[in-house]
Amino acid sequence: MKISGRIWKFGDNIDTDAIIPARYLNIWEPQGLAAHCMEDADPGFMKKMRPGDILVGGENFGCGSSREHAPIAIKAAGIACVVAKNFARIFYRNAFNMGLPIFESPELWGRVENGAEIEVDADAGLIRIVGVAADPLKIPPFPPFMQQLIAAGGLMNHIAKGRAK
C-alpha cells in the first residue's frame, strides 16, 4: 500500500470530541459524520481539505471516547490515512477493525509543516517528505495479526474468513 498526499498537522491529545463532537452523535451514517470531521479542532477543516489528504497528529491521537464515529468520520471525509506519534488504544483498535489506514511515526510531526506533501510506503515501512532530500523516515511494521486484519479489510471480514475455513 502506497499513499501520497498533502498533510494537515494537528497537535498532541487530539481527542474524539475534537474529531467528531458528541453533539453530532445522533448521526451514525458516515457521510453525515464526515460533514463535521475535525470541527472542534479546526472549524473550517472540511471546507479546506481535499479527498486524499493526510492527517498528521502528535501524541495520543484519538484519545477519549470509544466512538467509532471518529475513524468513520475521518475515512468518510476522504482522508487517506493518519500518521501520528502514537494513538490512543481504542482509536487504534477501531482503525484496524474498520479499515482506516494509520501509521505511527514519532519523527514525522517534527519534520513537516502544515501543507507538506508526503508519501507513505506501508510495505517498505517508509515515509518520504516530498521535496526533502533527507533519508525517508522508518515506520515500524505492524504485528502479524494486525497485518491480517488489514489484508482482510477489517475485523468482520477477518472473522468471516476464519469461519469459512
Binding site: S66, I90, R93, N97, M98, G154, M156, I159
Partner: peptide
C-alpha cells in the same frame, strides 16, 4: 475495557 462498535459487532456474533 472499552472497545469500538465493530468490536461490539464481532463480540455479539462470536
Amino acid at each position: 475495557t472499552g472497545v469500538g462498535s465493530t468490536d461490539l459487532a464481532a463480540a455479539m456474533l462470536t
